[in-house]
């Protein structure tokens, strides 16, 4: 069994294809969609968790690549700039998954990439603007 959080980027010409249907039907994967958007350039962004057998997952990845989809690691979508963070903690009540949380008794903010679902609420909730996203995500905001 494998469980992987990924981001799929769809070029405009395949954004209307039933990709998820194939992932389930042809590769027997369990799909948990975290977030999906299409931007005005008709590019798609799908964030999800895939689970299934290792072999099926690898076959699915190959197939997705063949379709022209870009597969990215979900954990690297949101960047916590520890050099800019003032450790106030304002983000910790906004983050829905406790990816951003307060470590006690240090009273310091900690970011756990593996818990992040890229909701991006922290980007604007941080007064010091210490949370950043990849440039490619800007077209989806």
């Amino acid at each position: 069994m494998i469980k992987q959080k990924i981001v799929l980027r769809f070029p405009p010409h395949i954004v209307e294809q039933p990709t998820i249907y194939h992932l389930i039907k042809d590769f027997d994967l369990m799909v948990n969609i975290l977030r999906a958007d299409i931007n005005p350039k008709k590019e798609g962004r799908l964030m999800m968790e895939l689970s299934g057998s290792e072999a099926n997952y690898q076959r699915a990845v190959e197939w997705l690549n063949e379709q022209g989809l870009q597969i990215l690691n979900l954990e690297q979508q949101i960047i916590w700039r520890s050099d800019l963070c003032t450790h106030c903690g304002a983000c910790t009540v906004i983050c829905p998954t406790e990816a951003l949380m307060f470590e006690r008794p240090d009273m310091k903010v900690r970011f756990s990439e593996e818990k992040c679902i890229v909701c991006e609420l922290c980007l604007r909730a941080c007064p010091a603007r210490a949370m950043e996203t990849l440039v490619e995500n800007a077209n989806f905001q």
Partner: peptide
């Protein structure tokens, strides 16, 4: 009710 600070206690320290 969950709490959050706007003032940095780590900074104050």
């Amino acid at each position: 009710v969950p709490t959050a600070s706007l003032s940095s206690y780590a900074g104050a320290r």
